[in-house]
Protein backbone atom coordinates (compact mmCIF):
# COMPACT_ATOMS: atom_id res chain seq x y z
CA UNK A 1 0.00 0.00 0.00
CA UNK A 2 2.96 2.31 0.69
CA UNK A 3 4.23 1.84 -2.86
CA UNK A 4 0.77 2.62 -4.22
CA UNK A 5 0.57 5.80 -2.16
CA UNK A 6 4.09 6.78 -3.16
CA UNK A 7 3.15 6.49 -6.81
CA UNK A 8 0.13 8.70 -6.20
CA UNK A 9 2.24 11.30 -4.40
CA UNK A 10 4.73 11.36 -7.28
CA UNK A 11 1.93 12.57 -9.54
CA UNK A 12 1.80 15.69 -7.39
CA UNK A 13 5.42 16.54 -6.69
CA UNK A 14 8.56 16.64 -8.79
CA UNK A 15 10.53 14.49 -6.37
CA UNK A 16 12.83 11.52 -6.60
CA UNK A 17 11.45 8.15 -5.63
CA UNK A 18 13.62 7.92 -2.51
CA UNK A 19 12.39 11.29 -1.20
CA UNK A 20 8.94 9.82 -0.52
CA UNK A 21 9.65 8.29 2.85
CA UNK A 22 7.16 7.55 5.66
CA UNK A 23 8.14 10.53 7.79
CA UNK A 24 8.17 13.03 4.88
CA UNK A 25 5.86 15.94 5.73
CA UNK A 26 3.44 16.85 2.96
CA UNK A 27 3.71 20.59 3.40
CA UNK A 28 7.24 21.23 4.67
CA UNK A 29 9.16 18.46 2.86
CA UNK A 30 7.13 17.72 -0.26
CA UNK A 31 5.75 21.21 -0.98
CA UNK A 32 2.04 20.34 -0.94
CA UNK A 33 -0.44 23.16 -0.46
CA UNK A 34 -3.99 22.60 0.77
CA UNK A 35 -5.37 22.41 -2.77
CA UNK A 36 -2.79 19.81 -3.87
CA UNK A 37 -3.53 17.75 -0.78
CA UNK A 38 -7.30 17.81 -1.26
CA UNK A 39 -6.95 16.80 -4.91
CA UNK A 40 -4.67 13.94 -3.93
CA UNK A 41 -7.27 12.78 -1.41
CA UNK A 42 -9.82 12.72 -4.26
CA UNK A 43 -7.49 10.48 -6.26
CA UNK A 44 -6.79 8.34 -3.19
CA UNK A 45 -10.50 7.61 -2.84
CA UNK A 46 -10.45 6.17 -6.36
CA UNK A 47 -7.13 4.41 -5.99
CA UNK A 48 -7.84 2.71 -2.66
CA UNK A 49 -11.61 2.41 -2.94
CA UNK A 50 -12.26 4.22 0.34
CA UNK A 51 -14.33 7.20 1.40
CA UNK A 52 -12.24 9.98 2.89
CA UNK A 53 -13.35 12.58 5.40
CA UNK A 54 -11.47 15.75 4.38
CA UNK A 55 -11.32 17.11 7.92
CA UNK A 56 -9.94 13.86 9.37
CA UNK A 57 -7.50 13.20 6.53
CA UNK A 58 -6.49 16.87 6.65
CA UNK A 59 -4.92 16.21 10.06
CA UNK A 60 -2.39 13.84 8.47
CA UNK A 61 0.87 15.74 8.25
CA UNK A 62 3.18 12.94 7.08
CA UNK A 63 3.05 10.16 4.51
CA UNK A 64 2.94 7.59 7.30
CA UNK A 65 -0.01 9.28 9.01
CA UNK A 66 -1.97 9.32 5.76
CA UNK A 67 -1.07 5.70 5.12
CA UNK A 68 -2.38 4.74 8.58
CA UNK A 69 -5.55 6.73 7.98
CA UNK A 70 -6.13 5.01 4.63
CA UNK A 71 -5.50 1.59 6.14
CA UNK A 72 -8.12 2.31 8.81
CA UNK A 73 -10.67 3.18 6.12
CA UNK A 74 -10.12 -0.06 4.20
Amino acid sequence: MFEQLKELILNYVEAEDDEIVPDARFSDDLGFNSYDFMCMLGDAEDEFGVEIDEAEAGKCKTVEELLEYLEEQK
Partner: peptide, 12 residues
Protein backbone atom coordinates in the same frame (compact mmCIF):
# COMPACT_ATOMS: atom_id res chain seq x y z
CA UNK B 1 -11.67 25.96 5.54
CA UNK B 2 -14.02 22.98 5.42
CA UNK B 3 -16.15 24.51 2.65
CA UNK B 4 -13.10 25.41 0.59
CA UNK B 5 -11.54 21.98 1.04
CA UNK B 6 -14.74 20.38 -0.21
CA UNK B 7 -14.85 22.77 -3.15
CA UNK B 8 -11.19 21.98 -3.95
CA UNK B 9 -11.86 18.26 -3.83
CA UNK B 10 -14.78 18.60 -6.24
CA UNK B 11 -13.38 21.37 -8.44
CA UNK B 12 -12.97 19.17 -11.53
Amino acid sequence: DKAQNELFKHSE
